[in-house]
Design a protein around this nucleic acid. Sequence first.
DNA 1: ATGCCAGCATGTTGCTGA
Length: 271
Amino acid sequence: MMVRLATWNVNSLKARIGHLTDWLRDAKPDVVMLQEIKCLEEAVPRLELEDLGYNVAAVGQKSYNGVALLSRHPLTVERRALPGDEGDVQARYIEGLVELPAETSDGGGGGAVLRVASIYLPNGNPVDSEKYPYKLAWLDRLRAHVADLLTLEERFVLGGDYNIAPTDEDVYDPVGWRDDALCRLESRLHYRAVINLGLTDAYRAMEPQGPGYSFWDYQAGCWPRDEGLRIDHLLLSPQAADRLKAAGVDRGPRGKDRPSDHTPVWCELDL
DNA sequence: ATGCCAGCATGTTGCTGA
């Protein structure tokens, strides 16, 4: 069974609900990780999503941040925050289990399970503010949690806006962005420490040459000039990466009227 | 060196984002 997953920073779920439902009807993903829903959990337009066949789980926050999971299959929430700092109140992490239909079982008798998470990693700018150490600490906490998850030897997909362009190939102007929190070496080293535990970047694994931009600033005509960055990623456990069949970026939603500044990144797993 | 755009709340201006 082919399972389609996608991650999309919608930059306000309320403002983007029309684009989101249009895209869900077109792309028909099984699981979607959303970021920057910018609303409380009770303000999520649940019925419009459920009408399209999705189960919905969200961790919300007024005005800022906020993450959600959508799944066409049964969904249970495992975590509503990234472990490692009880004092961190920003809504940036939700983790759940998706129960796939029983006929996709690999022999265990029951249905197969896929663990998924939606991640909104701190931006970190400006780098001389307290926001930058918060970003690096968040990456360290993520590394510790991924290390724990890997001991389970499960299939999992951690999708989200990582606010990291992993290499210069992922930036339209690497020199201009060299000292930015999304690109600077210290950020990349902390991110690579997560990847190097054994995760696979789905897009880069399938498209070694493609620019794969997923974000274009609203300003300065970045979209028409294709001046983008690849900062939204689907990171796969080894057991999920073994099943990776395709990955890509869907630029369609970024070209619409009143778009998010990000566009969906997707992958397909044969589970 | 700054603003460029967009969304939101503290709302007709300021904060935040990337």
